[in-house]
Amino acid sequence: MRVVMFGYQTWGHRTLRALLDSEHDVVMVVTHPRSEHAYEKIWSDSVADLAAEHDVPVVIRNRPDDEELFALLKEADPDIIVANNWRTWIPPRIYTLPRHGTLNVHDSLLPKYAGFSPLIWALINDETEVGVTAHMMDEVLDAGDIVQQRAVAVGPTDTATDLFHKTVDLIAPVTIGALDLIASGRTDFTPQDRSRASFFHKRAEEDIRIDWNWPADVLERLVRAQSAPYPAAFTHHRGKRLEVLSAVVSTGRYGGTPGRVFYREGDGVVIVAGADARTGRNHGLALTRVRTEDGRELPAAEYFTSMGGYLTGRP
């Protein structure tokens, strides 16, 4: 089939690579300009560079809503558009233009975790598996019929970076498998159960600020979800920002006020956690490695030279 690809960052790059390695003919690529947004500078393999290496025409757009792009798409005469990690709304006259419509590839197990940063949100929420879904695009974002979907398990110590590497390897088989089904004439794909749908926003600074009222197990997953190269989860100690690079749920149960720097346990320093910490029934979060405001990384047991005081959300 003649394919136009809409994509960005490493997800789009992997999709384009899979298409170029397939029997399908990539006739045009549409991608975003480079961005300085913190999350868009991560996993930033260039779709434009890969297309240029293979002499595929490239169009750079923030939004695909202008007459020039529409004319170029009509001229390209695609059988299908394939989109992965396209960051803005694609209007109906674009996604319905090809003979077979538009196939969107999304890094979650739809209908759950539509929208942005699905792997990070899924890890924070203790999902047991994540994956990649190829679905037909319709008027509701990430809501069209599912053509193909594959899942991988979330391990007990997996970080968001681990899950990225697990799921990015699913892009090629899911994308090409879905295209093969469409090319075969299949149209009876699986409607999404909208009662199970969830939609998440982009992550920002506020989303990585540690709230010591959260339970320790959720905070431990937040730290893993914000693994390098993502911006680290952070708190404040004595008015200065302190990033938490690694942590575990404490073995013991600790009572008191959330955020209290309380006890040395193993290689970590336990911080009291949970809105009901006063009951003494909660585990704490044992910080094991931190990074200071001036960029020093060190074991938490070295940073906290004495117990007492509090970690706070703001200075």
Results as ranks from 00 to 15, higher is better:
residue 174 V to N: 02
residue 137 M to I: 13
residue 293 E to Q: 12
residue 314 R to M: 11
residue 259 G to W: 00
residue 129 E to K: 07
residue 223 V to A: 05
residue 213 N to M: 09
residue 44 S to P: 03
residue 281 R to I: 07
residue 105 V to L: 14
residue 66 D to Q: 08
residue 65 D to N: 15
residue 281 R to M: 11
residue 228 A to V: 08
residue 5 M to S: 14
residue 117 S to E: 13
residue 217 D to W: 09
residue 115 G to W: 00
residue 140 V to E: 13
residue 186 R to M: 11
residue 98 P to G: 08
residue 101 G to C: 09
residue 93 R to Q: 15
residue 238 R to F: 03
residue 49 D to E: 15
residue 229 P to D: 04
residue 214 W to F: 11
residue 170 L to G: 10
residue 85 N to R: 11
residue 13 H to D: 06
residue 25 D to S: 12
residue 18 A to Y: 12
residue 298 L to G: 03
residue 121 W to V: 05
residue 309 G to E: 06
residue 282 N to W: 04
residue 90 I to S: 01
residue 72 L to Q: 14
residue 109 L to C: 13
residue 305 T to I: 11
residue 32 H to Q: 14
residue 218 V to F: 08
residue 67 E to N: 06
residue 135 H to S: 11
residue 191 P to Y: 06
residue 140 V to A: 07
residue 21 D to A: 14
residue 301 A to Y: 06
residue 179 L to Y: 08
residue 23 E to L: 02
residue 234 F to C: 00
residue 35 S to W: 00
residue 131 G to E: 03
residue 25 D to K: 08
residue 169 D to C: 04
residue 97 L to Q: 13
residue 15 T to Q: 09
residue 106 H to C: 07
residue 35 S to R: 05
residue 236 H to K: 02
residue 13 H to K: 04
residue 138 D to T: 11
residue 123 L to W: 05
residue 18 A to F: 09
residue 130 V to Q: 01
residue 302 E to C: 04
residue 238 R to P: 00
residue 240 K to D: 05
residue 27 V to D: 07
residue 296 R to Y: 02
residue 20 L to T: 05
residue 171 I to W: 02
residue 71 A to E: 14
residue 132 V to S: 01
residue 233 A to I: 07
residue 1 M to N: 06
residue 306 S to F: 10
residue 213 N to W: 00
residue 176 I to S: 04
residue 201 H to V: 10
residue 56 V to I: 15
residue 61 R to F: 12
residue 52 A to S: 14
residue 163 L to V: 14
residue 54 H to D: 10
residue 166 K to V: 09
residue 23 E to N: 07
residue 19 L to E: 05
residue 3 V to T: 14
residue 240 K to W: 05
residue 41 K to F: 04
residue 301 A to F: 09
residue 121 W to L: 03
residue 247 A to Y: 01
residue 37 H to M: 07
residue 19 L to C: 09
residue 146 I to C: 10
residue 185 G to Q: 04
residue 302 E to K: 13
residue 41 K to C: 10
residue 234 F to V: 03
residue 203 R to M: 15
residue 24 H to S: 08
residue 156 P to S: 10
residue 140 V to F: 05
residue 83 A to L: 02
residue 234 F to Q: 01
residue 206 E to Q: 14
residue 95 Y to D: 04
residue 145 D to S: 15
residue 215 P to N: 06
residue 223 V to W: 00
residue 258 P to F: 05
residue 122 A to S: 15
residue 208 I to Q: 02
residue 208 I to M: 10
residue 74 K to M: 11
residue 119 L to Y: 12
residue 164 F to R: 00
residue 102 T to N: 02
residue 307 M to W: 07
residue 253 R to W: 10
residue 312 T to W: 02
residue 64 P to I: 13
